[in-house]
């Protein structure tokens, strides 16, 4: 699962060889008076896995949540700077957050299936987006569950409560739920941090698999995980983007001392 060789070996932010799907210019985020993100500029490429790493509280999750505007839900959050998805400024006044979130899906740190049946968990999002025909819903549910590599485990109990699943299964169900509505981007906020090693392995395999169809941005605490699944890695520290490069380079030959200290486990 090494990073594909076709990727240009330049530092992405300065690269003009590709057009990033997600990009920010000097993005700053304030919680009340405190500045949580300090002028982040970066571009994220399509159909690759980009990992955000850094010690707790470095702002990586907050930054991730800027891309589908989940930070809007928190009182007192203010954002300055530019944040574009597909070339559109998503913080522009006339942007429909709902439409944005349909296209930028999210998987959370703690699996959060609805207290409904497995089937209904996935059908919910489909119905939201106007898909009503039972046969179509059934088809997509199956396809999504297969896509999330959980179909074989749940196909006989689709109509039982999702809360009866194990933690790893719940998380894969949440991934299935997110991909069922066909977003273009999938944001993952430490999706495997609450799982045991076996379940983590399954989720990681799944992420690599999903790369074919989605642009994935994943926040992770686990540096081995980042090396296993991501093409690019961005290292954040105290609300700043310290270094952003090919994963292989970040972990073998980082440019900054801070990055090196972190990836070699000297702090964090």
């Amino acid at each position: 699962m090494a990073a594909p060789t076709s990727i240009p070996a330049t530092n992405p932010p300065s690269s003009s060889e590709f057009k990033p799907l997600l990009e920010t210019q000097n993005l700053e985020l304030f919680y009340g008076a405190s500045r949580a993100l300090k002028g982040i500029t970066m571009g994220i490429r399509e159909n690759l896995v980009t990992a955000f790493i850094g010690p707790s509280g470095c702002g990586k999750s907050t930054f991730l949540r800027c891309f589908n505007r989940m930070n809007d839900l928190i009182d007192g959050v203010r954002i300055v700077g530019e944040c574009r998805v597909g070339g559109e400024d998503i913080y522009a006044r006339d942007v429909d957050v709902i439409e944005l979130r349909k296209r930028v899906g999210m998987v959370f740190q703690r699996s959060n299936p609805f207290p409904k049946s497995i089937f209904e968990n996935i059908a919910y999002g489909l119905r939201l987006h106007g898909i009503r025909a039972t046969s179509e819903i059934e088809g997509i549910v199956e396809q999504s569950l297969k896509g999330a590599a959980i179909w074989d485990e749940v196909k006989d109990r689709l109509h039982q409560s999702a809360l009866g699943l194990s933690g790893g299964q719940q998380q894969r169900l949440c991934i299935a739920r997110a991909i069922a509505i066909r977003p273009q981007v999938l944001l993952m906020d430490e999706p495997a941090s609450a799982l045991d090693p076996i379940a983590t392995g399954k989720v990681e395999d799944l992420i690599v698999e999903l790369k074919k169809d989605f642009t994935i941005v994943i926040v992770t605490h686990n540096m081995q995980q980042a090396t296993r699944i991501s093409d690019y890695t961005a290292f954040f520290y105290l609300g700043e983007l310290v270094e952003y490069d090919l994963t292989t380079r970040i972990f073998t030959n980082p440019a900054k001392k801070k990055t090196e200290d972190y990836v070699t486990g000297r702090f964090g």
Partner: peptide, 15 residues
């Protein structure tokens, strides 16, 4: 299925 690559669809005027 129906991946919408035209991101201008997120503008509210249409929604």
């Amino acid at each position: 299925r129906g991946v919408d690559r035209d991101w201008s669809g997120i503008r509210r005027a249409a929604n």
